[in-house]
Design a protein around this nucleic acid. Structure first.
Lengths: 263, 263
DNA sequence: CAGTGGTCTAGACCACACT
DNA sequence: GTGTGGTCTAGACCACTGC
């Protein structure tokens, strides 16, 4: 509760006139700038891969100093929404760059580095339209029965299947997505989402468990039923924490491992 | 224009007079400050939990402006080596705080939040001195045959065993560590390492796989042999990327899951 | 109240990339 | 050379904590 000490000039500071109890009660200028940049990103004013205006330009636009814009951009860059490149500019992050092709795929071959196996072979096993079950709906912030797209694919490295994934997407934002488009597309699926549907995945949460392979999983991954698999349930979010994908993956961990850095 | 405000007399800026070919060729002041703070941390000038000098004090000591010290501290804080607390000061991070008790333990109960099960029960099954095998030595940057301490423990939540861990430590830095001390100690093991051995774990890398439980694992975790377990191999590092612990954990994932955030 | 970190500004200069 | 991000400074003021 309390006191908004901000006298603010014209840059309207996200007024907190609600009646709810515990408000942050203070919002630094750079956070407001950050919010405005975020909005432009969400609305597609600047597209993935493109450069955003220079710091000076933005400072002028928002009527603040360059340092304030700088701090806002620093924040967004540390969240991997923007990428700074000295001497060139600041760019909207994308999943289409070689450098970060597998930012969300933490599976690494036992011998070698990420990507050392060459490109993954993607085999779309299934792609259909259905309606959301209760748990699918909950994960995607939909209602039970809402239309969803469901796909199943197998990723292989060096002719060895390594990952089986079931993917659910809300039908509305992905209108027009077909098995053909998935099959014909080269590169990361998230890059396709960016270019074709203007959906950019920004972060994700994973729940990881060890589970025995079912007969169905075993057939597709060419392993024995009952073999322990890494079960990876992922919910991926766009800007503003809107969930846009549920993915249930099963990873073989005889040839690969899931790598994680704690800090 | 007033020309070089920095008389840079004494704060020697890491002169690059070497003849070698590809050097970074430029090291910002704040990075050098960061390195000096890092050294003080490593040498124990400020201990975990203690406050470091104020930004102004450090600025005076290093003959730079507050802003430069600030940037150095920002970096270290983002790496979780320091913790800023507005109005109070900047503190050396520690594993002993309630808030971050389980910063390196990503296992979460299926229903509930981290820590919602109350304190973990730790049962030291074994603790002995031995010599490093080839792979243990490699992980800890030792030589094969060097002295190591090896411990095995079971962590239980609500009377249900959930984790079995084998831990290897280089003997030298942990001289005097006994089963009794491990057993009698309350709280995170990494907190014990800080207070008793001045070893602070700063980051870690994990390799995660799914593996069937052996008979030995099954007995200790009270599950059936062959049950899929999450195998988590962790190498933990102190300052300056020195490896100080190898840990092989086996997590039950029927009651819990491993949580990971991708961004 | 004084002391700490946090924000904001304004200006100068440096390193890098393109042209 | 011009324009971009990156560094550094100096000073003002704000917000939070604890005496």
């Amino acid at each position: 509760m309390i006191t908004s000490p901000l006298p603010p000039g014209e840059t309207s500071p996200a007024a907190n006139d609600n009646g709810s109890a515990i408000t942050p009660s203070f919002s630094p200028l750079y956070q407001q700038i950050k919010g405005m940049i975020l909005n432009s990103l969400r609305l597609g004013e600047w597209k993935p891969g493109e450069a955003i205006p220079s710091e000076m330009d933005l400072a002028t636009r928002f009527r603040v100093s360059q340092g304030t814009v700088r701090k806002a951009i620093d924040d967004l860059a540390s969240e991997h929404l923007l990428v700074r490149r000295q001497g060139k500019g600041t760019f909207v992050a994308t999943h289409a760059e070689q450098q970060v092709q597998f930012r969300f795929l933490k599976l690494v071959p036992n011998n070698g580095n990420p990507g050392s196996e060459g490109p993954a072979y993607r085999d779309i096993v299934q792609c259909r339209r259905s309606s959301a079950s209760a748990d699918i709906a909950r994960a995607l912030a939909l209602r039970t029965g809402d239309a969803v797209l469901q796909a199943r694919r197998v990723l292989s490295f060096l002719d060895t299947p390594a990952i089986l994934e079931d993917i659910w997407l809300p039908a509305a934002p992905f209108k027009g997505l077909t098995a053909e488009r998935l099959t014909n597309h080269q590169g990361p699926m998230y890059a396709l989402f960016e270019t074709e549907f203007n959906v950019r995945m920004v972060r994700a949460e994973e729940k990881i468990r060890a589970e025995p392979a079912t007969q169905g999983h075993a057939d597709l991954l060419k392993i024995a039923p009952g073999t322990p698999l890494l079960s990876v349930e992922r919910v991926a979010y766009t800007y503003k924490d809107v969930p846009m994908e549920l993915r249930r993956g099963y990873y073989r961990t005889d040839t690969h491992y899931y790598h994680n850095r704690l800090s």
